[in-house]
C-alpha cells in the first residue's frame, strides 16, 4: 500500500482539524442554557462537555507537538470513488431509500470491477428487494415513503 509519511501537512491535518472542531464545539457549549443552582445538581449542563473538550484539545496539541512523523496511507482511487458514491446514495435516498440502495450497490459493484450483469442485478435489485420484504413482513418495519416504496405501500 502506498503511504505518505513525514513532517509535512499530513501530520498537521488530523490534530488541527480536531482542535478546530473542538473550539467550535466549545463555543457552542457556551451557548447552552444555564440552570439555577437549585436545579443544577452538581454541574451545569455545559460543564462536562467543556471538560471533555479541553481534554481533547490538550491531547490533540500533544499529538501535534510530539508525534513528529505520521504515516497516512494515500487515498486509494477506489476508496475515493466509493466515498463519492456514498454521497450520491445520500442524495438518491432523499427520493427513495431503496432506489438509493439499489443504485449505490449496482454502481459500487461496477466501479469495483465486476461487470457481470447477473452480479449487478443481484446486488442492485435482488438483495435490496429481499431485504425490503424481509424487514417489512417479518419485522413490520415501515420504510419512508418514496418513489419505489409507494408501489408497495400504495
Amino acid at each position: 500500500m502506498t503511504k505518505s509519511s513525514g513532517r509535512g501537512p499530513a501530520r498537521w491535518v488530523a490534530p488541527v482539524t480536531i482542535i478546530g472542531i473542538s473550539l467550535l464545539a466549545f463555543w457552542q457549549s457556551t451557548q447552552f442554557e444555564r440552570v439555577p443552582p437549585i436545579l443544577k445538581r452538581g454541574m451545569q449542563p455545559s460543564d462536562f462537555p467543556q471538560l471533555v473538550l479541553l481534554l481533547i484539545i490538550a491531547l490533540a496539541l500533544y499529538v501535534l507537538v510530539k508525534e513528529k512523523r505520521v504515516t497516512v496511507e494515500k487515498l486509494h482511487p477506489k476508496a475515493l470513488s466509493s466515498a463519492g458514491l456514498l454521497i450520491a446514495f445520500a442524495l438518491l435516498a432523499e427520493v427513495d431509500l431503496f432506489l438509493g440502495l439499489g443504485v449505490f450497490s449496482a454502481a459500487l459493484c461496477l466501479s469495483w470491477g465486476d461487470r457481470r450483469p447477473g452480479a449487478i442485478l443481484f446486488v442492485g435489485l435482488v438483495v435490496p428487494m429481499l431485504i425490503f420484504f424481509f424487514f417489512d413482513t417479518v419485522f413490520d418495519i415501515r420504510f419512508p415513503r418514496g418513489l419505489l416504496t409507494n408501489l408497495w405501500y400504495g
Partner: peptide, 9 residues
C-alpha cells in the same frame, strides 16, 4: 464486489 454492496444494504 458482491459481498460489500450487500453488507452496505
Amino acid at each position: 464486489q458482491i459481498l460489500w454492496p450487500t453488507v452496505f444494504t
